[in-house]
């Protein structure tokens, strides 16, 4: 009896949060096997939605892009964030101002900044035009109209948005490195480079994993950015799974196929997360046995 209120406070919200995820996911899986078009219906069609989604060029391109974009975005955001954190950690003048500058992109919606990025990256009116007008006529920065490179403009804008967040987390990590550890390394005669690679960065590992999870989440759910920046183009070269899901469900009025695309996307994610979890589990087991 005494524990009733706490059970209520712990379990009710947690169960609601967990239940909506389980139920919504299960619902999506179920719908992916039905003939749903404009409205969800229960007519079972087997794997038909999956075969038709997998046959589209949109899905193939989006799937490849997920890896290019996901990999590029996570790696470059992490690197930029780390670089910024290390630089700012050098007793830089105006640190507070700089920190705010690097963080602000996170505060502004891509519905807004995506449009501005599409101007900046456009060779006819953005960075290329500016440099050309300054006299360097041969300068080219036209990734956004290049089918091969366009996905990297999405990476660029994504890094711009998230790098400050990675920086803040990593900077916090740098600042909490034990001073003794550094002193000991100095006595051993380690130079700045060795100091970072051998002593400091290894202690940042847990924070990096946390950053990784958040960045992975951002990469997979990226949607507004592409819609505002390239509209999925040139052609259909910058499609991403989240866009394909939305496109089938709401633009094409094929909810069943959209759900199938969503399930394929979640399965891909599991393909990344499950090995990670197994690895962690195995390591813990080994540590426990040792």
């Amino acid at each position: 009896m005494r524990r009733a209120p706490e059970l209520l406070v712990i379990w009710v919200p947690l169960l609601l949060a967990a239940a909506h995820i389980v139920v919504f996911t299960a619902w999506t899986v179920w719908i992916s096997f039905t003939a749903s078009t404009l409205m969800p219906v229960s007519e079972f069609v087997g794997l038909r939605n999956y075969t038709s989604v997998l046959a589209t060029r949109n899905w193939k391109i989006a799937f490849d892009n997920l890896f290019i974009f996901g990999g590029g975005f996570v790696a470059f955001t992490m690197l930029t964030g780390l670089l910024l954190a290390i630089l700012i950690d050098q007793r830089i003048r105006g640190e507070n101002v700089l920190r705010s500058i690097f963080l602000y992109p996170m505060a502004v919606s891509f519905v807004v900044t995506g449009v501005v990025w599409s101007w900046l990256l456009n060779p006819g009116m953005g960075v290329q035009k500016l440099v050309n007008d300054l006299g360097w006529a041969g300068f080219r920065f036209d990734w956004i109209v290049d089918r091969e490179m366009a996905i990297w403009t999405i990476v660029l804008a994504g890094v711009w948005q998230a790098a400050g967040f990675a920086m803040a987390l990593l900077l916090a990590g740098l600042r909490s490195v034990e001073p003794d550890l550094i002193k000991a390394a100095q006595i051993d005669g380690a130079g700045p480079l060795r100091m970072y690679t051998r002593v400091i960065l290894p202690t940042l590992w847990p924070i990096m994993v946390a950053v990784l999870v958040i960045l992975l989440q951002m990469a997979i759910t990226t949607f507004d950015l592409v819609r505002a920046l390239t509209g999925g183009g040139p052609g259909i070269a910058t499609q991403l799974p989240a866009l394909v899901v939305y496109d089938f469900m709401f633009q094409r009025g094929q909810i069943g196929r959209g759900a199938a695309a969503a399930v394929l996307m979640l399965l891909t994610l599991l393909g990344v997360l499950v090995p990670h979890a197994l690895f962690k589990y195995a390591r813990r087991r080994r540590a426990a046995n040792a």
Binding site: L14, I21, V22, T28, Q217, A242, M249
Partner: peptide, 16 residues
């Protein structure tokens, strides 16, 4: 389970 929810795009949750 709750954490997995961060990976569920909100477009997918719209109809539910």
């Amino acid at each position: 389970l709750v954490t997995l929810g961060i990976f569920l795009p909100q477009q997918v949750r719209l109809i539910p």
